[in-house]
């Protein structure tokens, strides 16, 4: 459905951030992109959604296709119109707008007012807490509520693909669980496919169908989540488990660091 073919991204004409990234999001599934800070996960999402351009970044090689259309180089608002919605890292709700106004703004691409109203009700059905906060300035919502609003706002444009950037950031484990549960339901009930960027690898590998591991602007590993969970490198470096499978003791970390088996 959405495929990224060997793209390179350059910031400010000089800084090479992505060095040939390819990945594929299949229809009706959750694909996760794992990696450490600065690996290029967010840049990958921004390359897809087109907001890269406002940060002086550019896709210089490769292509991004959505369905049969090539979307790299398209402007962000046109990409959204085609059915790709991005949920930004750190929630980024419109703080000075109320909850409901945020949803209205999210439905900018929807023409009919009645459809906007239906969309708002649908979001409230998935996230009932938001309904109680509808008249409140979204800047004052709790972190969890803001994350729900950010997802709900993206849902307003009835996207076919949702790009989710670190929805677990700064949230309590129970909330993370709840939000991922809703994401799962969205995939099943709204026919949305999700590209999920996460640092919380354990959670991501639990909820996703397929996964990629990124390092230094490259994809270094790919596979079904089951195979990734079994991969010894992923276990060691992303899940914090050692060979035997028990939790690693931090006392040992400094003594011995196993080399990764991929080149980066």
């Amino acid at each position: 459905m959405l495929s990224i073919n060997n793209i390179e991204v350059v910031y400010d004409n000089v800084i090479l951030v992505l060095k040939g990234v390819s990945l594929e999001v299949k229809s009706g599934s959750i694909t996760t992109l794992l990696g450490a800070n600065g690996a290029g996960k967010t840049t990958t999402l921004k390359a897809v959604s087109g907001v890269l351009r406002s940060e002086r970044g550019e896709v210089t090689k490769g292509s991004i296709t959505f369905g049969a259309r090539r979307i790299d180089g398209m402007r962000a608002f046109d990409v959204t119109r085609l059915g790709i919605a991005q949920v930004f890292e750190g929630r980024r709700v419109f703080e000075h707008l109320t909850t409901e106004e945020n949803l209205v703004a999210g439905a900018h691409t929807v023409r009919r007012v009645s459809k906007v109203r239906d969309g708002i009700e649908r979001v409230y059905a998935y996230f009932p807490v938001l309904k109680n906060r509808r008249e409140q300035l979204s800047g004052y919502l709790s972190g969890g509520e803001q994350q729900m609003l950010a997802i709900g706002r993206a849902l307003m444009s009835s996207p076919k693909v949702m790009l989710l950037d670190e929805p677990s950031l700064g949230l309590a484990p129970m909330l993370v669980e709840e939000i991922f549960g809703i994401v799962r339901r969205l995939v099943q009930q709204e026919q949305v496919s999700v590209l999920l960027v996460e640092q919380n690898a354990a959670m991501a590998l639990e909820v996703a169908d397929h996964g990629y591991v990124m390092e230094n602007g490259r994809i270094v590993l790919e596979g079904s989540v089951a195979s990734l969970r079994d991969n010894s490198d992923v276990r060691e470096f992303y899940l914090g488990l050692n060979e035997v499978g028990s939790r690693k003791s931090y006392r040992d970390v400094k003594h011995y660091k196993r080399r990764k088996r991929w080149l980066s």
């Binding site: 959604s49 087109g50 907001v51 406002s54 940060e55 402007r75 962000a76 608002f77 959204t80 119109r81 919605a85 991005q86 930004f88 980024r92 419109f94 703080e95 000075h96 707008l97 106004e101 945020n102 209205v104 703004a105 999210g106 900018h108 691409t109 007012v113 906007v116 706002r153 444009s157």
Partner: peptide
């Protein structure tokens, strides 16, 4: 709705763009 979109632009241009708003 246009007014709300304009306030969204004022709040955060990049996010507004990703909502399909032609900033």
């Amino acid at each position: 709705r246009m007014g709300i979109a304009m306030r969204a632009v004022a709040d955060n241009q990049q996010v507004a763009m990703a909502m399909g708003i032609n900033v």
